[in-house]
Simulated scan of single mutants.
Amino acid sequence: MQGENLTIWSLFFLEGFSRYPELEIVLFVFSLVMYLITLLGNSTLILIAVLDSCLQSPMYLFLGNLSFMDICYTSASIPTLLVNLLSCQKTIIFSGCAVQMYVSLAMGSTECVLLAVMAYDRYVAICNPLRYPIVMNRQVCVQLATVSWVTGCLTALLEASFALQIPLCGNLIDHFTCEILAVLKLACTSSLLMDMVMLVVSVLLLPIPLLLICISYVFILSTVLRISSAEGRNKAFSTCGAHLTVVILYYGAALSMYLKPSSSSSQEIDKVISLLYGVLTPMLNPIIYSLRNKEVKDAMKRLLGRITLHQTRENL
């Protein structure tokens, strides 16, 4: 700290779940297992999307980006959580806190936009199948993915830069990570500018993309219901089921965290939601896409077959 008001901190203490020491080992095991499954599942999806020639469609390009975001998002906070769950000194330096806050915000914001892009991709594929190769060509897909990344990274930079400049009257963060809302609770005075930035970014990245997703699925549902054969309807629904499930999980947690009144739940509940949002959702994404998508399951079988064949040749 510097000066008499002690508002510039070089070290922060993370409260985490230290109020419940008997649960810390359980939470450590739970978080570690979920994190390893997240790394394995999302890395596998990226690998098969890159290596399998049958998965070179726009949907799998976006899915690869989604998996990479989930790896980055969990890696920004979960390793620190794991260390602190086993440590008596639950600390993080200012630069580490800044990086953690920025990466979490950037990946979360980018995913909001990307899920809307993926909904548009499904809309074009089902409602305009003949024009799909033209509308969603490789260049357009790369541009849409780039827009998602740029939007998420820039809005995160805006939020984090404002948040880190606000004078803080303490260095005990009542969270297991440098989550922006938890850090802002330490502010000495409320900042109207910061509140406006948070509100504008939250509206731009939560309700608006969600509205676009809903509009896309209204058109999709209308088109699917006009398909005469049950087999055709089931095939159309199967291509959207995984994405829709991920959207419900992701936006359900995000909206409950960022758009609720501050007095509606305790900080302990916020931490539990954050843990589920930061660990469980990224872990479930590749599982959902694998279980509900025949192409992904077939690609995984081909990849496992190649690995088995390679090992057999090496043994011979």
Results as ranks from 00 to 15, higher is better:
Pro129Val: 01
Pro129Thr: 13
Pro129Arg: 14
Leu130Arg: 11
Arg131Tyr: 12
Tyr132Met: 01
Tyr132Asn: 10
Tyr132Phe: 14
Pro133Cys: 13
Pro133Asp: 08
Pro133Met: 03
Ile134Trp: 02
Val135Gly: 02
Met136His: 05
Met136Gln: 04
Met136Leu: 11
Met136Cys: 02
Met136Ser: 01
Met136Val: 01
Met136Ile: 04
Asn137Glu: 08
Asn137Arg: 14
Arg138Trp: 15
Gln139Phe: 15
Gln139Tyr: 13
Val140Ile: 03
Val140Gln: 07
Val140Asp: 02
Cys141Glu: 07
Cys141Ala: 09
Cys141Val: 15
Val142Glu: 07
Val142Ala: 09
Gln143Glu: 05
Gln143Trp: 10
Gln143Thr: 05
Leu144Met: 02
Leu144Pro: 05
Leu144Ser: 11
Leu144Gly: 05
Leu144Arg: 00
Ala145Leu: 09
Ala145Met: 07
Ala145Val: 09
Ala145Asp: 11
Thr146Ala: 00
Thr146Arg: 04
Trp149Ile: 09
Trp149Asp: 00
Trp149Ala: 03
Trp149Val: 10
Val150Tyr: 05
Val150Asp: 04
Gly152Met: 06
Cys153Ser: 15
Cys153His: 11
Leu154Tyr: 13
Leu154Ser: 15
Leu154Gln: 14
Leu154Ile: 14
Thr155Leu: 00
Thr155Phe: 12
Thr155Val: 02
Thr155Ala: 04
Ala156Gly: 05
Ala156Met: 06
Leu157Lys: 09
Leu158Met: 14
Leu158Pro: 10
Leu158Thr: 14
Leu158Lys: 08
Glu159Leu: 09
Glu159Gln: 12
Ala160Met: 06
Ala160Glu: 08
Ala160Ile: 11
Ala160Ser: 12
Ala160Asp: 10
Ser161Cys: 08
Ser161Leu: 01
Ser161Phe: 00
Ser161Pro: 03
Ala163Asn: 10
Ala163Cys: 14
Ala163Val: 11
Leu164Gly: 06
Leu164Thr: 11
Gln165Thr: 12
Gln165Asn: 13
Gln165His: 13
Ile166Asn: 07
Ile166Trp: 08
Pro167Trp: 00
Pro167Val: 05
Leu168Thr: 07
Cys169Ile: 04
Cys169Trp: 00
Cys169Pro: 07
Cys169Asp: 02
Gly170Phe: 04
Gly170Arg: 01
Gly170Asp: 01
Gly170Pro: 05
Gly170Ile: 00
Asn171Gly: 04
Asn171Gln: 03
Asn171Ile: 02
Asn171Cys: 01
Leu172Asn: 12
Leu172Tyr: 09
Ile173Met: 10
His175Gln: 11
Phe176Ser: 03
Phe176Ala: 03
Phe176Arg: 02
